[in-house]
């Protein structure tokens, strides 16, 4: 479940980044594609998608808190590292993936900040940080290819026995496969996932998304 939510967040961020990047710059192809696809809805996108992203995000990361003991007071005494009940390995791994997006792409900083207070130029500059870092994470850990290599807008055949994971048929579906139609979105798929191993004891809670950083003098 959480994997789905994380991917939702990613897609939403990509969509909002695509909508936010100033038009003049050469932008990566996939952002261009997303943007082209979304062009009619463009005016409504940034607020809507971001709001949605934040909601999903809140849902993901505040849910486990319900099982945590109440927050310690503001002036925190030293407490043992990794307090809290043991979390499942799958959950910890998802937090770790988010931590990678934060470490390299500052994704959580991007989403948790108040976007309305800044100009498009400021948001654009920040989007570059997010784009470069998150893209590097994706490239390091997945091999991402389009499902269909034809240009969008061309007519394609959907073979018999296609995987419903890889194709979503819309419009008027009748007769039998192979189906012919216009490629609206080329799709993305991955066949290689190579995530780093999480180093974590059996009794540890969820890892932090980003550690508090203290410059010791």
């Amino acid at each position: 479940m959480r994997v789905v939510l994380i991917i939702t967040v990613l897609l939403l961020v990509a969509v909002s980044a695509a909508a936010l990047v100033p038009v003049a710059e050469p932008i990566p192809q996939y952002l261009a594609l997303i943007r082209q696809y979304l062009e009619p809805a463009r005016p409504y996108l940034p607020p809507a998608t971001l709001a949605l992203a934040v909601l999903v995000f809140v849902e993901i990361f505040f849910q486990p808190r319900r099982t945590l003991p109440p927050r310690t007071p503001a002036a925190e005494p030293a407490r043992p590292a990794f307090a809290g009940p043991p979390a499942s390995r799958a959950e910890a791994e998802i937090v770790q993936f988010l931590a990678m997006l934060q470490e390299q792409g500052r994704l959580v900083d991007f989403l948790m900040d108040d976007i309305n207070a800044y100009t498009d130029a400021q948001v654009g500059a920040a989007a570059r940080v997010v784009h470069a870092g998150c893209k590097a994470v994706l490239q390091d850990h997945f091999r991402i290819d389009p499902v269909r290599s034809e240009p969008e807008g061309s007519t394609v055949q959907v073979p018999a026995g296609y995987s419903s994971d890889e194709y979503r048929l819309v419009g008027k579906i009748a007769g039998s496969a192979p189906f012919s139609g216009v490629l609206v979105h080329r799709g993305w798929k991955t066949d290689t996932v190579k995530l780093p191993q999480l180093l974590r004891g059996a009794d540890d809670g969820l890892p932090a998304i980003a550690p508090a950083e203290v410059d010791v003098k």
Partner: peptide, 8 residues
């Protein structure tokens, strides 16, 4: 943590 305000 503020990405928007202080990105150069």
């Amino acid at each position: 943590s503020s990405l928007f305000a202080r990105t150069i």
